[in-house]
Design a binder for these strands. Structure first.
Lengths: 159, 159
DNA sequence: ACCCGCAGGTTCGAATTTGAACAACTTCGT
DNA sequence: ACGAAGTTGTTCAAATTCGAACCTGCGGGT
């Protein structure tokens, strides 16, 4: 009989830890669906696309390098290429090549893109409040910001 | 000029709320990737597949109705059909029709499935600790469990 | 100036997810 | 009982995601 080599038994999750992990999974899943749904229905955008518009709108000249944008959105370069392509088809974003690096590409927010974002934002914020923010009290929000901030930071490529 | 009808301006997110939302998004994204990666690399399972095995292993006779399973995993019925199909190909799960309802289908954990889960579990738990649990202190875990529990519950189909 | 290692984006195919449409069946009200 | 209405699980096509392979071009060391 083939035996699988023993993995050292890890410290299992106790009840509280299990509750936290399960809560995280369920909240994650349902909040994502809720937000995705709202944006799709009311603005015709995916959450990914919405976030791209947000980043661009906050950047100088409304433009950002592809790689930098991908990192900021916690996504892959190829995934971003696809979504920017979609947004470009709709005229919400343009591409131009980077002046300082021939290889580079800048995603640029168009006037239409800015308008689409303006239109989509109120409903999106409302959905985020309904799903997450307004369900938590101030103390809980503080813990989320700090604790999950730390969690995210630790998993960044940079460490 | 076509005018977009005004949406009532929502209450925008203040700094703390924004930090919580951003933290949630980043943590969500990175933790999911971390866990997904570990399972894929060390056990050849997707997180979705792993969770299916977990649920089944905790059920009487290791079997659950498809719909019930889908709800428990916060996923769609068609998504589950696909994943159970994958697991069935590998012999980790079987299907049998429900005795009390001809339409119904039970997903059943096989001995191989139970073994695969046993093998995968230690590494998975370790990954979850690394990514989330061990990064938070007791109080933070309590807030996650309670606060995010409430968040998830409120978005359940049942309300 | 030249070469090698590496970074920037895109492309490709494979895997997955989603919702709508469907067929078969159960259930509830009357 | 009977029929309308709702369930159950699957199938399908379309959209998305991922990583590996790829080509091009930047930069440091010699």
């Amino acid at each position: 009989m083939a035996q699988t080599p023993d993995s050292p038994a890890p410290r299992w999750l106790d009840e509280q830890e299990m509750a936290a992990w399960h809560g995280f999974l369920e909240a994650t899943s349902r909040v994502a669906r809720h937000v995705e749904q709202q944006l799709k229905d009311e603005a015709g955008l995916s959450h990914a696309q919405y976030e791209i518009l947000v980043r661009l709108s906050g950047a100088p000249d409304g433009e950002i390098r592809m790689t930098e944008l991908a990192e900021g959105l916690f996504t892959t370069k190829s995934g971003l290429t696809y979504q920017v392509g979609q947004l470009e088809k709709r005229g919400l974003v343009t591409r131009r090549s980077c002046p300082t690096d021939v290889r580079g590409v800048l995603a640029v927010l168009t006037a239409e893109g800015r308008a689409a974002l303006r239109d989509a934002a109120p409903g999106h914020v409302t959905a985020v409040r309904e799903a997450l923010i307004d369900v938590l009290d101030a103390e809980e929000l503080a813990v989320l910001a700090k604790g999950l901030g730390r969690v995210g930071a630790r998993l960044r490529p940079s460490g």
